[in-house]
């Protein structure tokens, strides 16, 4: 029987579907009987989904982003000219 600590250690492996059959059965057995660990695994799933879902792209059409892109392209162009 796994302890709660051991269940917590295997939480990411469980939610990322990386456990072998034996470990998976042991986890399921523990989770069926332990409300605390069941809640913990749910928390870890939510955490995984939230960290993946936070907006990481500059989606807005902002002048600032446009300006930075123009600056990079200009620098690239300068580099090419001096290189030849």
């Amino acid at each position: 029987m796994l302890s709660c600590k051991e269940v917590a250690e295997r939480a990411s492996a469980l939610i990322d579907r990386e456990l072998g059959m034996f470990d998976l059965l042991q986890m399921r057995l523990h989770l069926a009987m332990c409300k605390g660990c069941d809640a913990f695994i749910r928390q870890m799933r939510t955490t995984r989904d939230l960290t993946a879902a936070v907006p990481v792209a500059d989606d807005e059409r902002s002048d600032e982003v446009d300006g930075r892109i123009t600056a990079i392209l200009a620098q690239l162009h300068d580099g090419k000219q001096t290189g030849h």
Partner: peptide
Amino acid sequence: GLAAAFDGRGRWKDMPDLW
């Protein structure tokens, strides 16, 4: 950051919440 969450027998000191 989780070591302190368990007692000497590997059980939760405070049960996690359901959020």
